[in-house]
Amino acid sequence: MALMQKGRQQLLAFGSLAALVMVFGFLRPDTFLTTENLIGILQATTVTGVLGIAATFVIVTSGIDLSIGVLMTFTAVMAGLFLARLGWPLSVGIPATLLMGAAAGCTSGLVITRLRVAPFIATLGMMMVLKGLSLIITGARPIYFSEVEGYEDISTGSMLGQWLPGLPVPNGVVIYLLVALVASLLLNRTALGRYAQALGSNEEAVRLSGIDVGRWKVIIYALGGGVCAIAGLLGSSRLNSAQPALGQGYELEAISAVVIGGTSLAGGSGTILGSVIGAFIMSVLVNGLRIMSVADEWQLLLTGIIIIIAVYVDRLRQT
């Protein structure tokens, strides 16, 4: 029964996504349904999409991580520091960046479990700390990767397009989907995923089952941080620069995608597939409205209403 319900929840999200694509495709067939535009949508989804995956793990435990948007910026800046300023090779700089992301997530996890600060506050503080650090390290100026060979290709190149010239899907999108696949395996098929869901369902019962709750929470926040670093690499590669002022606000977009995908903020249940579909719904919406020449302020207003409706419909389905 649980499986069926999960399936239905994703079907609903997927149905909404398909409906959105059809509506925009019908209204603007020549501009919306072009390969170029569809690939643009995929590309535009990668960063918030990867952040959404990071957020899903934490939200399933009934926690929240508000620092993920700025954490992405911070890791982009670290990548700039390692690769552009210090001139490390990609093979060293990229793992080092991922480690920095995990370390930042780990810090949030420790503050939450050891100092017993509520996740909302701990990660809110972390958000400010990381933003400050990013600005301090860069002197509030962007770091450019123009000297770093191959960096831009991480996100915008297309290895798939070299094999299948008709399908020039950018590497960033492929990486996003691979991350989603691995994350989905982690959440559904490993002890980590099972504990994450159990923590969200009943933390005290997990503790009294003899499971080291603190340790697993730290691991989950660290994993989230590591995934954010992937978003940081993808984002900065796409811009070919690390922009220290960017990033704030991304966490709310990512969390919206997760919630649209049917993951409950109360914890205990959630799927990566849902979060991926949620992220696509958000970017199809933005892209479609832009193509329809809807003004930015109206886009924002409509997106807000749609998030509320999406969650309301999900609630209806559950009762």
């Binding site: 649980a2 099972r194 869901q197 159990a198 369902s201 009943n202 005290e204 019962a205 997990v206 009294l208 205990g268 249940s269």
Partner: peptide
């Protein structure tokens, strides 16, 4: 409150 993760299934 302490014994079961009531939202999870019997097997879990």
């Amino acid at each position: 409150h302490h014994g079961l993760a009531t939202g999870m299934d019997v097997e879990s």
